[in-house]
Structures are given as structure tokens and as C-alpha cells.
């Protein structure tokens, strides 16, 4: 039953693409960062995005939090129901992390690990590494890779890679931006991860026509942080690390107006039908 949900999404995704491209010229798009099993945040994000033309979950649906499997299934079912819901792969959609950060354990506690995990891993391998919206807004979980430096080359990244073991794909899921780093510097998250500075970012953005990079991956106390003169935003959507959970909304008109919504802590905070717009 649960495997069926995952399989249907794999089928719906069809031939896997490393960079999913979408053009949506009006309305607004919502971006959700790491939820880590925060089913409440995912529900909230979708409920308040009823009028959004696009809702993108920027990875890390599992590991760490309370309802990892249910969070994954909920978002996947939502993505099956609506083409407007997109899932980008995070570093925790990986066989590298699930044994250490709780997802494998949760599946074992539920008695479904052996039966379900192969389907989960197959789905991981089909999730795109990036969403390119309107040719100028890029959403990735971690950041840019030291190589290759063109989005065009990202189109050739290998899929069905459960870790991923490809070093460029790995970097896209794991890298972090830093204001005071020159170029790329080996990061502190482990072998193969890098920190990238404003010069590396600006070069990439210019080369690929990127106006805004949306990424997640790092806990932010207020749920979000702008860097690189506002051209990069980190969004984090789980309270697991005691920070705030936030959601980013971007107008898709010419001005790309941005709005941060902090997920309220109290229950019953939105009326149904949810429409705070």
C-alpha cells in the first residue's frame, strides 16, 4: 500500500531528469525547506499554498523528526495529485544518511523496512537535483557544485544514484554558501562537501542567468537567511533544531516579490479553506 504510493510517483516522474524545468508566468510559487518528518509543517505549507501556482519541497523530508514516513508519503501523494507540487532531492534522501539519522530506524520500528525501503531508494534516485523555474530561479537543496559550472552540464548528471555517489550531484545536495569564502573550500560536513563563496556563486549565476538561488540544508533560527546581496536565500522549515519553520513565497511576475511566512506554533491557526492571501 505505502510502496504503491512511492511507485506511482516514480511512474509519474517518468524518465528521470536531473534538472526539472518549469515555466509559470503568473501567480506565485512557495518553497519549503527541510521538513525532516514535520508532517504538521508540510500540511500547513500545502494548506496555505492553495492559491500558489507551484509548491516546491526543497528536500530532506525524512530523517530526524517525528513522522518521517508519513511526511514523505503525504508530500509524495500531494505531488501525485497535483503537478504543482514538486519534490527536489535533499542530502537526506539518501542511503548515506538514513541509517544514521533515524529514517531506517523508524521504518524498522514500523515493521516495514525490508518491504518498503527498496521502493524508497528507487524514488530517491528519480528525484531531480534541481528545479529551474522560469529559467532564472534555481532551487537546490545544498548549493552549486565546484564542477560542472553550467546548468546545461547538470542535465547530464547520473540519475538512479542512491547516495548519490556522483561527486557533482553530491555537492548540489551537500554544499553550503559562505560570505567569507573565496571560491570553493572543503567543508566541514565531511569528505566531498564544499563551502562556496560569493565570487563562485556570482560566476555561476551570471553564466547560467540565475537571478535567485533558493536552497535549504542549514538550520536558520528565524527559518530563513538571505546571503550574497539577496541573490541566495536559505529556507528551513522544521522546528527540530529549535529554530523557526519558515516558507518562502515568490511572486512570479516581473518583480519576483518575496515573502517569508513563519509557520505558527499554535494549532488551529488557519481557517479552512486556508487562504491567508
Amino acid at each position: 500500500m505505502m510502496a504503491d504510493t512511492l511507485d506511482r510517483y516514480v511512474e509519474k516522474l517518468g524518465h528521470p531528469v536531473p534538472v526539472r524545468k518549469m515555466v509559470v508566468e503568473t501567480g506565485e510559487a512557495a518553497f519549503v525547506g527541510d521538513t525532516h518528518g514535520a508532517l504538521d509543517v508540510s500540511s500547513y505549507a500545502l494548506a496555505v499554498s492553495r492559491n500558489s501556482a507551484l509548491v516546491c519541497f526543497v528536500g530532506d523530508l525524512v530523517d530526524r523528526g517525528k513522522n518521517q514516513l508519513y511526511n514523505l508519503l503525504f508530500v509524495v501523494e500531494s505531488a501525485i495529485i497535483s503537478r504543482r507540487v514538486v519534490i527536489v532531492r535533499g542530502n537526506h534522501e539518501s542511503t548515506l544518511t538514513n541509517d544514521y539519522y533515524g529514517f531506517s530506524e523508524e521504518l524498522k520500528d514500523l515493521g516495514v523496512f525490508d518491504q518498503l525501503y527498496p521502493h524508497v531508494v528507487r524514488l530517491y534516485g528519480r528525484l531531480p537535483y534541481a528545479l529551474l523555474l522560469n529559467n532564472c530561479i534555481l532551487a537546490v537543496h545544498g548549493g552549486i557544485a565546484s564542477d560542472p559550472s553550467t546548468l546545461h552540464a547538470w542535465d547530464s548528471l547520473p540519475m538512479d544514484d542512491p547516495e548519490p555517489s556522483d561527486s557533482s550531484a553530491f555537492q548540489i545536495l551537500w554544499n553550503d554558501p559562505r560570505e567569507y569564502v573565496d571560491g570553493f573550500l572543503p567543508g566541514t560536513r565531511g569528505e566531498g562537501t564544499y563551502l562556496f563563496g560569493p565570487d563562485a556563486f556570482n560566476e555561476f549565476a551570471q553564466k547560467n542567468g540565475i537571478k535567485l538561488l533558493i536552497r535549504a540544508h542549514e538550520v536558520k533560527k528565524s527559518g530563513y537567511e538571505y546571503m550574497f546581496q539577496g541573490k541566495l536565500i536559505s529556507i528551513f522549515s522544521s522546528r527540530y533544531h529549535k529554530g523557526k519553520a519558515a516558507i518562502l513565497r515568490i511572486g512570479l511576475g516581473p518583480d519576483n516579490r518575496q515573502e517569508i511566512m513563519v509557520v505558527p506554533d499554535e494549532e488551529g491557526s488557519i481557517e479552512w479553506p486556508a487562504d491567508p492571501v
Binding site: 559562505r178 560570505e179 567569507y180 569564502v181 573550500l185 566541514t188 563551502l195 533560527k221
Partner: peptide
């Protein structure tokens, strides 16, 4: 340039 403490960065 990198620290576990955000405030030090």
C-alpha cells in the same frame, strides 16, 4: 569563515 556558532561566522 566556518563555525558551528552562527554568530561567529
Amino acid at each position: 569563515v566556518q563555525s558551528p556558532m552562527d554568530s561567529l561566522m
